[in-house]
Amino acid sequence: MSDRLPDSHRPLVPSDRTRPAGPPDYVRVGMPSPPWWAVVIVLLLLAGAFFFGPHYYRTADYWKTFATGRTVVFVLSLVILVAILRARRGGRAFVRRIPGLTAIDEAVGRATEMGRPITFSLGLGGLDIITLQALAIALHVVRLAIRFGTRVILTTIDPTLYAVADEAVHEAYTAAGRPESFNRDDVRFLSDRQFAYASAMVGLMHREQVASNFMFGQFFAESLILAEAGNQVGAIQVAGTPTTTQIPFFVAACDYTIIGDEYYAATAYLTREPVLSGSLVGQDRAKMLLLAVILLGISLVTVLTLIGSPQSLQWVKDLAGLFTNAK
């Protein structure tokens, strides 16, 4: 088993300093992408629709129920997009240390030392944003594991996602120059039924005696079943999910838990690719903007309460309504 270890293995010091600056090799050879002309097309279409559109666009009622919500989403998206596009032109951004994510390297390294496989559960999501992010993290783990010749068993609950994952993992092996090492049985569709999936994962972890277990994606009640099973076989466990209600169970049963939008910061942190860290900068700015809006709203409402909300200030009261009544 251990003969698959590379000689120089004392790997993956998970500190920021030892990590090479800039993106790893595999992201350099990416696809070209069309952001500027795409943005132009979108803006032209929207502008056309607004300026040559029907009369109801200009009624107050329409602005009350429709436009506020769209404006908020649009502005937030724009803030993020601008930061991404700026970062793309060079420069890499700072990403603060996220303890749970440094553990990923450690967990892969441990599996390599022990010569046992890794399981990676993509949760209960289908082909949606949340699960695609989980898949991106999974691919990072797979690429690391390929370098050290460690097996990663990737499990999904959705057949469409299974297809994408299978293809992406295959591609990762090809890119690493080891297409022959790709074992189709290591990307698995287990079941599309929540607890059948859970029972299969429990059996899998016990039988393979996995050294590390990753859980990223959407998790519901089965989160604790998987985490306890991993705990029983003594696996190092790293978990992250946007389903906040399941975080406590991961915190209780896993070694490292990624909380909240650390989940979305993960890829930026792991790859240090400019686009991703730029996106993180954008997200932070959008968050500040959101915070500012909320603080402004709070102060207005508070002032209103203190002066007893006279009729002339009714519009201030309506401000909050703009958000809650948005359709």
């Binding site: 959101l290 909320i294 709203g297 709070i298 409402v301 401000l319 703009l322 958000f323």
Partner: peptide, 11 residues
């Protein structure tokens, strides 16, 4: 969206 509006609570 609604959660933003719902956060406008007076102190």
């Amino acid at each position: 969206m609604k959660q933003i509006g719902a956060s406008f609570k007076p102190l």
